[in-house]
Amino acid sequence: MKNFELRRDRYEVFRQFDNPLLNISLTLELPEFRPFCKERQLPPFHFFLYCVLSAIETIDHFMYRIHEDEVIRIEDFIGSFTVINGDNNLNFARFTRSADLRECIERSVRAGREAQASRALINTSADLTPRQARENVYITCMPWFEMRAIEHPIFSHRAADIPSLAWGRFSAPAGDAMTVPFSVQAHHGFVDGYHVHLLARAIADRVAAVMAAHPQR
């Protein structure tokens, strides 16, 4: 929490706003990872999800939450993302993350299939305590279009402390690089535009590092 104390005065300002949320949409520039995934039979969405979640935890500002009107720092978070079920309705997938690439992807794929197969809305955090519910990052993907911006539904803006990340359709293959339309929503008391920049850079670095650590045999 030492880093947070350096910006507590900023937090105290933004926490008084009716809407303290920062929303930034950008274009992520990444190493082209789809051939890497194809060679190793890894689903590209779940590979990218692994890299995004791994990158988030390296930036302290995205780990702050509000619990019982006090700022806390979570040490880990749930793996979660949205899916479309068989009725073409929204559902939530949830899984326990793993540092191991293949194990984490297996878990996220399994969670996605479970959510897709459920007609009922599941994994809404109703089964979690208020403290456990803070250990989350909201993830959604809209692969059908090149997303320009997004505004997430908020129950109470002042209490919205959990970051929400979204991305759209991957760019067409074109050499060694690719782009992804990407959006970050976070409490401005914790996160500035600079920290969104750090996250974007961390995601690209993570993609490159994971690819380098898993050469083709």
Rank of each mutant, 00 (worst) to 15 (best):
L6K: 08
R8I: 09
R8F: 03
R10H: 12
D18E: 13
D18S: 12
P20A: 08
L21N: 01
S25E: 09
L26N: 06
T27C: 08
E29R: 11
E32S: 11
E32K: 06
E32C: 01
F36Q: 12
F36M: 10
C37L: 09
K38T: 13
K38S: 12
E39N: 14
E39W: 01
P43L: 08
H46E: 12
F48Y: 12
C51V: 04
I56M: 08
T58W: 03
T58K: 12
I59W: 01
I59Q: 00
D60M: 10
H61R: 11
F62W: 10
Y64H: 13
Y64Q: 02
R65I: 06
I66E: 14
E68K: 15
D69R: 15
E70K: 12
I72T: 09
I72Y: 02
I72D: 05
D76K: 14
F77N: 11
I78K: 11
I78D: 11
S80W: 07
V83F: 09
I84F: 08
N85H: 10
G86M: 12
N89E: 05
L90Q: 04
F95P: 06
R102I: 12
E103K: 14
E103D: 15
E106G: 08
S108V: 04
A111G: 05
A115Y: 06
Q116V: 13
S118Y: 00
R119W: 06
R119S: 13
A120D: 14
S125C: 07
P130N: 03
E135Y: 02
Y138S: 00
I139W: 01
T140E: 02
C141S: 15
M142P: 05
M142K: 05
W144F: 10
M147Q: 08
I150W: 13
E151Q: 09
H152N: 06
F155L: 14
S156G: 04
S156V: 02
R158C: 07
I162S: 05
R169Q: 13
F170K: 05
F170A: 00
G175V: 10
D176C: 06
M178E: 00
V180F: 03
S183C: 11
A186L: 07
A186K: 02
G189E: 08
G193Y: 03
L198E: 09
A200F: 11
R206P: 00
M211K: 00
M211D: 11
A212H: 05
A212N: 07
H214V: 14
